[in-house]
């Protein structure tokens, strides 16, 4: 058993290392245009240099603050709206085509318009992050509570639990794993919304930094910043995965 899981982690790492190694060789040998892509080793050096640069760290902090703000508003707002909407089946059915539309449209296209209306700054960027994540959390909340097995509220009734007690002690714990999955998706969308907006039109933030480096032909710095962004996102994903594993511990997969 242990061998299997060790191998499962080893194989993709080896494959990835192989790809990186190939890239390194390709860049050094000049097979790839060095103006376009720099060698991975140089990317890492640029990353380290960036981490020591207070300006880079400041921009990263600004983006992080925006992501957190967008994530919190989107998840709390989506959750509350989902709870409010849940009992109204007629309204839910009527809203379904709008949800489908909303999912299809890249909300980021509203960002430029938003900057025209409210100017630059964190507010429109956070707004786009919220706009992207809110619906995901809303639909996840609806589905999570829909999936609570019918027998569980019956047991609450059998114990004479009131509405609030049933909601807090039965529905919420039962729905918790699905709610957390929704949270993961929402935060993912918030990240995309914030970073994409910063790329487009912003004066600060890591997205803006990357765009600025690109425009200024500072390729090395650009790759350092991109690598920093990617690593941060992967770290956040890892944390969320750990959280999900914690919530799902002791429950079999798919056992609702």
């Amino acid at each position: 058993m242990k061998n299997r899981s060790n191998r499962a982690r080893l194989v993709p790492t080896v494959v990835f290392a192989f790809i990186v190694g190939l890239l390194e060789v390709a860049c050094r040998a000049g097979w790839i245009n060095r103006q376009a892509v720099i060698a991975p080793s140089e990317m890492v050096l640029a990353l380290v240099a960036g981490l020591q640069n207070p300006d880079v760290l400041r921009n990263l902090g600004i983006s992080a603050m925006r992501v957190v703000a967008a994530g919190v508003v989107a998840s709390v707002g989506g959750f509350l709206l989902g709870c409010l909407l849940r009992p109204h089946f007629g309204l839910r059915r009527a809203l379904e085509p709008f949800f489908a539309t909303y999912y299809a449209v890249p909300v980021v296209i509203f960002y430029p318009l938003l900057t025209l209306m409210v100017g630059y700054g964190s507010l429109p960027i956070i707004a786009i992050g919220v706009a992207m994540g809110l619906l995901a959390m809303l639909t996840a909340t609806l589905e999570a509570f829909d999936r609570v097995p019918r027998v569980l509220p019956k047991i609450a009734a059998a114990h004479c639990l009131g509405w609030w007690a049933t909601a807090l002690r039965i529905r919420l714990p039962s729905a918790a794993p699905d709610l957390f999955s929704g949270l993961k998706v929402t935060i993912g969308y918030a990240v995309v919304g914030v970073i994409a907006s910063e790329f487009l039109l912003a004066s600060e933030g890591i997205g803006h930094l990357i765009q600025d480096d690109y425009n200024g032909f500072r390729t090395r710095d650009m790759y350092g910043a991109i690598l920093l962004l990617v690593l941060c996102v992967l770290a956040v994903n890892r944390l969320l995965r750990l959280g999900e594993d914690h919530i799902r511990r002791n429950r079999a997969a798919g056992f609702a």
Partner: peptide, 15 residues
Amino acid sequence: VGIVFQEDGSFPWLN
């Protein structure tokens, strides 16, 4: 009065 239902009513999040 105590009721045992047909479906599995054990709470998966509690031991």
